[in-house]
């Protein structure tokens, strides 16, 4: 680990002032950043500990929930309001990592975790994220866990978070604070596709801090689920995951949300599938068409072609089961 300075931010203004310094990086639970520093992938000169800030979950006047960026993953998943109104989010969080890590990891940190690509983690390999322009050893290497959607020749990595897949489906918004003031952006716009600049992973500006995630009133609580498929029964990253919520009106699909994990550089909101579902009857053949529509642009690499079929099956099966679910709320 390269030596660094450590400051615990007393308040938001203090955090932003520290975060504006060159080489500064915000520190949440450290479950990803400390590992990356130890692996000499990340070299912050100053760690600004923000775990003491934004630790509340509050009801919003609109009937939604505002989750402070410093709230631990366990606390979010354990919150009664989240469990009742946003069970999809609770499930997704509980599908991730281990209890120990969820006890440490913060909401903000989870959002900003980096890819698990082996070539990103190995500084002997070429990686455009670590060294822009160096090339990508994953394209022709081990890429079983890599992206099938939205990848570029420069980068085929995936985003590893489960929580973020649920947030994408729930149409959350993210509150960002910078020294020039705050802004809200749609969660779906926060993460970027790799394109030519895979080193730029989010829309965050230098020094900007995530302070909260806001969930809109509709938590899809009646019919929603998070389904995670992985290589062992627990404590493994998703090969494919699906966050889905469905509203039915007399057998016809009303609002529908579908997001995929493990398939792209960002939590993948399945807009094409959603468009193919809205207003159509909730039947297996419609679900299949929707999955096909979403996966039509999918491109396999050497080892990950199975993800296309797997995603298709999991989308269809998840929707079939949701359509069958009795309304619970």
């Amino acid at each position: 680990m390269t030596p660094f300075l450590y400051e615990r931010a007393a308040d938001r203004q203090g955090a932003l002032a520290l975060g504006a310094r060159a080489g500064a990086s915000y520190l949440g639970g450290g479950t990803n950043l400390v590992d990356l520093m130890r692996e000499t992938i990340a070299h912050p000169e100053l760690l600004v500990d923000v775990t003491g800030l934004s630790r509340e979950i509050e009801d919003t006047p609109e009937g939604g929930l505002r989750i402070g960026a410093g709230v631990k993953n366990t606390a979010v998943a354990g919150d009664r309001r989240v469990r009742q109104r946003y069970p999809l989010l609770a499930q997704a969080i509980l599908a991730g990592a281990s209890a120990q890590i969820r006890n440490m990891a913060t909401t903000g940190g989870n959002i900003l975790q980096r890819t698990r690509c082996a070539y990103f983690y190995d500084d002997a390999a070429r990686c455009n994220k670590r060294a822009p322009g160096a090339g990508c050893d994953a394209v022709e290497g081990f890429n079983r866990i890599h992206a099938i959607l939205g990848a570029s020749p420069a980068c085929v990595a995936t985003h590893p978070s489960d929580m973020c897949v649920a947030l994408a489906a729930l149409e959350a918004t993210v509150t960002l604070e910078g020294q020039d003031g705050g802004r809200e952006i749609a969660f779906a716009d926060l993460h970027r596709l790799p394109g030519e600049t895979p080193e730029v992973e989010t829309q965050l500006r230098p020094g900007e801090l995530i302070t909260a995630v806001t969930l809109p009133p509709n938590g899809l609580a009646a019919r929603s689920t998070y389904r995670k498929v992985r290589d062992r029964a627990s404590y493994a990253f998703a090969l494919v995951s699906v966050a889905a919520g469905l509203e039915l009106e007399g057998g016809v699909i009303g609002d529908v949300r579908l997001a995929l994990g493990g398939v792209a550089h960002k939590p993948w909101r399945a807009h094409a599938a959603e468009a193919a579902l809205k207003g159509r009857p909730a039947t297996e053949s419609v679900f299949r068409e929707a999955a096909e529509a979403e996966l039509a642009p999918a491109r396999p690499l050497r080892d990950n072609g199975f993800k296309i079929e797997l995603a298709r099956r999991v989308i269809v099966d998840t929707l079939v089961k949701l359509a069958r679910t009795e309304e619970t709320v």
Partner: peptide, 25 residues
């Protein structure tokens, strides 16, 4: 253990990526 035939390097040298059974398995 994933041995990259281009470089002779093991690419999953960790307990996160080299999977062994956990309780749930």
């Amino acid at each position: 253990a994933q041995f990259d035939e281009r470089t002779g390097r093991i690419m999953n040298p960790s307990l996160a990526e080299y999977h062994v059974p956990v309780h749930m398995d």
